[in-house]
């Protein structure tokens, strides 16, 4: 592993000295930003040049202006979305982790319940959202429930996969000193499953944002989803765009936060260590 890395840097070093490579490296780094800037510029130009009506497609400058002018409105709706999204997400995490721990402790429960979860996994949870609204009514609770329902499944499926895949050899090590069930869970299964759990947690962040938006589309009087919808109803397309940008920022930050937490709490699977243990 380390050997490979060191040869890599040795190979890369002379390349960096070459002139053409330097330019290429700059383009590679800055490329996506330059392209984005160009596309936005083109958008601005095209809207002005062809005089596209703003209810159809507002110019980027209009969107920025609106974000500046209606900042407090955006903020209010963003907070509503974030609140329901985060609380729904935390509920999903809590229930998914608790239920998986119980299923590991009581195999009978796993045999009864897990097939249901696996079957439900393939049902598009978004489709259930209107029913949740019927049962709970519009408002914060229905948003929370939709987010929980949609974020729950990837977490529990991934967590269970991690718990169940614990290497036989590592288990034998624990058995060799008659480790208790509790020790095996907290010192073997849980740390072993960490990369799996975080894979589920990361997928769930994206789904939580989606769930919050859908719930707000269906019936809500606040939230960025509501803002997107009301903006399009009122032909205030710039406002819809502003809300979508806010949603993108929230989704990306949420995902980034989870990746950061993972880097602090979890370990990474290394191909080389897998190899040496498998041989």
């Amino acid at each position: 592993m380390t050997d490979i890395q060191s040869t890599d840097t040795v190979l890369a070093a002379p390349e960096r000295n070459g002139r053409g490579i330097t330019l290429r490296a700059v383009v590679e780094r800055a490329g996506p930003f330059l392209l984005t800037a160009f596309l936005i510029g083109f958008w601005e130009f095209a809207v002005r040049f062809f005089e596209v009506p703003s209810f159809l497609l507002p110019a980027p400058s209009q969107i920025v202006m609106l974000m500046y002018n209606e900042w407090s409105l955006l903020q209010m709706h963003a907070i509503a979305t974030i609140t329901s999204m985060v609380s729904g997400y935390l509920c999903a995490v809590f229930f998914a982790l608790t239920i998986s721990a119980l299923m590991i402790r009581f195999p009978l429960m796993e045999r009864c319940v897990m097939p249901i979860f696996v079957a439900l996994q393939s049902v598009p949870k978004i489709a259930i959202a209107p029913l949740i609204l019927v049962w709970v009514g519009a408002g914060f609770h229905s948003k929370l429930l939709v987010v929980t329902a949609i974020a729950f499944f990837p977490i529990i499926i991934n967590t269970m996969t991690g718990f169940k895949q614990v290497d036989r050899g590592l288990r034998d090590v624990f058995t060799s000193v008659a480790a208790t069930e509790r020790q095996i869970f907290f010192q073997l299964r849980l740390p072993y499953a960490m990369p799996y759990i975080f894979a589920g947690l990361r997928i769930a962040t994206t789904l939580a944002v989606l769930g919050a938006i859908v719930a707000e589309y269906l019936a809500a009087s606040n939230g960025l989803g509501y803002l997107v919808l009301s903006g399009s109803f009122n032909f205030n397309t710039a406002r819809s765009f502003a809300a979508i940008i806010a949603l993108a920022v929230i989704g990306t930050s949420f995902f980034g936060l989870m990746t950061f937490i993972e880097s602090r709490l979890s370990w990474k699977r290394h191909a080389s260590s897998d190899e040496t243990t498998r041989v």
Binding site: D167, G169, L170, D172, V173, S176, V177, A178, L188, P191, Y192, M194, S266, W267, R269, H270, S273, T276, T277
Partner: peptide, 15 residues
């Protein structure tokens, strides 16, 4: 905890 076992695989905890 007085049995010392060494297996074909090192079986070290990667974390």
């Amino acid at each position: 905890g007085r049995l010392g076992l060494v297996f074909q695989q090192a079986n070290l905890m990667p974390w």
